[in-house]
């Protein structure tokens, strides 16, 4: 079973939810479809939503909500469905 890692495209601040009042994008075990939003990286007031280009099962975030991330850092993993 293949695991796909999603990396941050930019240095910034990592968020697991679209805004503080909204639920997290994904929880461990959730089904992920292509096109689903997975997390958010904010850099200097510009927001980058990371969108899934695959379908599968959400394995979890590797970074805490609101932590600083660097470009190329792995943010989350998805187990690709066969």
């Amino acid at each position: 079973m293949a695991i796909k890692e999603f990396m941050s495209p930019v240095p910034g601040i990592f968020y697991t939810q679209p805004s503080p009042d909204e639920p997290v994008y994904k929880q461990v075990g959730d089904v992920v479809s292509e096109g689903d939003s997975l997390c958010l990286v904010e850099v200097m007031k510009s927001f980058h939503t990371i969108v899934s280009d695959t379908s599968g099962t959400f394995k979890g975030y590797l970074v805490e909500n609101e932590d600083e991330v660097s470009p190329g850092q792995v943010l989350l993993e998805i187990e690709i469905s066969e």
């Binding site: 240095p11 910034g12 601040i13 904010e42 850099v43 200097m44 007031k45 600083e68």
Partner: peptide, 8 residues
């Protein structure tokens, strides 16, 4: 160090 938290 230019911080990512504020405007550019």
């Amino acid at each position: 160090k230019i911080s990512p938290y504020y405007d550019s």
